[in-house]
């Protein structure tokens, strides 16, 4: 389903984002036009094979490379080295509502965001009521999203992202959205998808939820895989290590 072979991603940390003429002249005068940038590998030598229907959790400290790994699988980033092969439709829930336009209403955003996720027009039309119903935002459907609370935005986004039954679901720390009732609802929805045979890649700092839903856990540190295996064993080991 998902296969990563010797994958590496390199960032240039010292990157000057807004490289300008001024900078160019300064560098020319100082005679270091080709300054060597410090190299930083966000991921290095990653080998991972995920089978259909498997639920894989990713754990690790901030900056360990969890989100980068998800982005590589989702196709957002091309690896600097190595090979990634993914078969099946992906629904990325990396950051909910990334495609929202705050000036548009919830109704308009449902169509916009759904198109960003690659759904077809007929599909969105047929599922429109279901999306609205799940988000419980009937009364606000023609209100610009700019006037929504952040919880409402997240609800809407979650409802759109989960309306398909994707073969692969990528979830980055999003189950904490909305109020308690909606959290329970969204967790139930995800469990349903898992039972339905969806392959899941799941990032969370909530160790308990990882233990509960995952079949396997990958422990990442500084862009490298430390351990792969049984959730309970690895989570406990991870917790002992970082609590020291």
């Amino acid at each position: 389903m998902i296969k990563l072979e010797n994958v590496g991603i390199k960032f240039n940390l010292g990157i000057e984002r807004n490289y300008s003429f001024k900078q160019l002249f300064v560098d020319l005068l100082k005679g270091k036009r080709k300054k060597k940038q410090p190299e930083f590998w966000a991921l290095k030598n990653i080998d991972l094979d995920i089978k259909k229907g498997e639920v894989v959790g990713l754990i690790g400290t901030n900056g360990a490379g969890k989100s980068t790994l998800l982005k590589v699988v989702a196709g957002v980033m091309k690896p600097t080295e190595g090979k990634v092969s993914v078969s099946g439709g992906i629904s990325p829930m990396i950051e909910l509502g990334a495609g929202f336009d705050m000036d548009l209403t919830a109704r308009e955003n449902i169509f916009l965001n759904a198109s960003v996720l690659g759904y077809s027009e007929d599909f969105v039309k047929s599922k429109f009521n279901e999306i609205v119903e799940f988000s419980e935002l009937h009364d606000f459907i023609d209100v610009p999203v700019r006037n929504f609370s952040s919880g409402m935005v997240a609800r809407l986004a979650f409802s759109i992202a989960t309306i398909v039954e994707p073969e692969i679901l990528i979830v980055d720390e999003i189950l904490g959205v909305g109020d308690v009732a909606f959290q329970a609802k969204s967790e139930a929805k995800m469990m349903d998808m898992i039972k339905g045979g969806t392959t899941v890649l799941y990032v969370s700092h909530n160790i308990e939820s990882i233990k509960k839903i995952c079949d396997r856990v990958v422990w990442l540190d500084h862009g490298k895989i430390i351990k792969i295996g049984d959730p309970v064993t690895i989570c406990d080991e991870y917790r002992n290590k970082i609590m020291k």
């Binding site: 336009d101 000036d103 548009l104 308009e108 169509f111 916009l112 198109s115 960003v116 690659g118 759904y119 077809s120 027009e121």
Partner: peptide
């Protein structure tokens, strides 16, 4: 083919946003 709908949405977004208020 796959992203025709997205293209349509992006164009219509520009229209809506431009004249919305």
């Amino acid at each position: 083919k796959k992203y025709k709908f997205l293209l349509k949405q992006l164009v219509s977004r520009d229209f809506k946003v431009k004249y919305k208020r």
